[in-house]
Amino acid sequence: METLRGAVPDALQTPLASAEAAVARQLGVSDDAALAILIAATLLAIVLATWAVTGGNSSGSAAGGRKRTGDAVVLLGNSGSGKTSLFYKLLTRHFAKMSRLADKCPECVTSMEIQEKRFPLVGANVDTPRRVIDFPGHARLRTQLPEVIVQARCLVFLVDAAAVKPKDIREISSLLYDVFVEIIRSGCEPRMLIVCNKCEASGAIAPEDLRKKLEKEIDGLKTTRHSIDTEGDDEMEIALGTEGVPFEFDSDAGCEVEFCSASVLEGGAKLDPVLDFIADAFPATSA
């Protein structure tokens, strides 16, 4: 044990001795054992600290200030739009490629938790594993939106193209509005793809029509959202677009927005627009 002690620089001897005594008292072990414990603890601390710095969350978007986006693919949308299905579709494509089986779309129910996994995205021409986050659509979880937005490299916003009654459009635009406000607040610039999912269903809306409907509805939201003050609010509320000018995705969304039509269920070529979009979000140089 004395050799161990000798290895410690002189300057640290006094604090070491007192810490050692404290450990010895606490655990009721001998001084020598306490020294061993202390050294082990120090080493452990160093290892953990290194792990926390390197292996921990590497999104570093808002904190760093230089990078304006995170590194994850974030799946958004209202309940029942097909986020979880898409998540597993992307995941099984990876396994399907390895095992030469067809990719599948497992049965899903309403999600209750944010789910995050890191896996290679087959079809999006990248070999590096990417983080994919599935954000549940239920309104109760919407308070967690900010923490997800800052992690996003790209946002895939799914819409059930077969359910676009006025009430559905109101709900979709509510969520979109929250997302846009959060994007502006965070200062991040992820790209967004709005997917008219379930395009195989009868009565599925075309992307252009959806765009018009959403723009109109979000324009309405611009006035109603801030028509009443929040009690004791000290934060500036962020408004979308310019007052009096109709809302447009191209100028007022706070990020680049594209539209497409796809089918998660059928997959194949009908999923390509989504995969191409994700591939574009990760240029080869950044891999």
């Binding site: 979880l141 509510s174 109603t224």
Partner: peptide, 24 residues
């Protein structure tokens, strides 16, 4: 987190918007 989730409205409480929709 639990409190925020509890206070988050599970349905739209934008009365003005709902009223305008009804008007439409």
């Amino acid at each position: 987190k639990a409190l925020q989730r509890l206070l988050a409205p599970k349905r739209s409480i934008d009365v003005l918007r709902e009223a305008r929709a009804a008007k439409a």
